[in-house]
């Protein structure tokens, strides 16, 4: 029997959650015995070619590409996991929520202290670029998410224990120190 396929994505995140995944250290050898990692920044596989068992989402959605990506994941994965604060509640990128998009763009491209090279005062607006959303959305505000693993980043032990419990169907018992929001 083939191993379950796992995909991961980093949307509006900082890759910290992926780093934390790698922090499971030598258990990564056990992990590859349990699963195959498919589409993921780790493998650089970019497309879904078959149905996946698990999709792990880091980051919320701040632009149209994030949304499409997330919707792809929902379509192609049986189970979706929001990994980390950004996927769960927007996290740091969501600190712009509530500030009008025009103000954000002005600050980023026109008036910020580090934008003096933008002498023509233009906003990037090529059609190839993703379109910015009015605010940053937690992943479950776009698609249904099955499980949530908090942390910034989530502790490696939490990721490991949760994945093993999910893949083996065992009950999850977590030490207090493992579930944190920071």
């Amino acid at each position: 029997m083939s191993k379950p396929l796992v995909a991961t994505a980093s949307l509006a995140g900082c890759f910290g959650c992926h780093m934390s995944l790698l922090d499971i250290d030598e258990r990564i050898l056990k992990l590859v015995e349990l699963v195959d990692i498919g589409k993921s920044p780790v493998t650089d596989i970019k497309t879904f070619t078959q149905q996946y068992a698990v999709g792990i989402i880091e980051g919320g959605c701040c632009n149209s590409e994030n949304v499409h990506n997330l919707q792809e994941f929902r379509k192609n994965c049986d189970i979706l996991i929001s990994l980390g604060e950004c996927a769960i509640m927007g996290g740091l990128p969501a600190m712009r929520n509530g500030i009008p998009i025009e103000e954000c763009l002005n600050e980023a491209y026109l008036e910020g202290p580090t934008v003096h090279l933008n002498t023509e005062k233009i906003f990037p607006n090529d059609d190839e670029l993703p379109m910015l959303l009015d605010r940053v959305y937690p992943a479950h505000e776009i698609v249904k998410i099955d499980y949530f693993l908090p942390g910034c980043p989530p502790r490696a032990d939490l990721i490991w224990d949760a994945l093993v419990a999910l893949l083996t169907g065992k009950e999850l018992e977590l030490p207090y120190e493992v579930v944190k929001y920071d």
Partner: peptide, 29 residues
């Protein structure tokens, strides 16, 4: 935003979240 908050780790609200095993709010943010 716990990750950016100086009180994280000493916050009673957060601590209650831990105690009750809150992984996400069921209510839209």
């Amino acid at each position: 935003y716990c990750p950016t908050c100086e009180m994280s780790g000493n916050c009673e609200l957060q601590a209650l979240g831990y105690r009750f095993g809150m992984m996400v709010s069921r209510f839209p943010y």
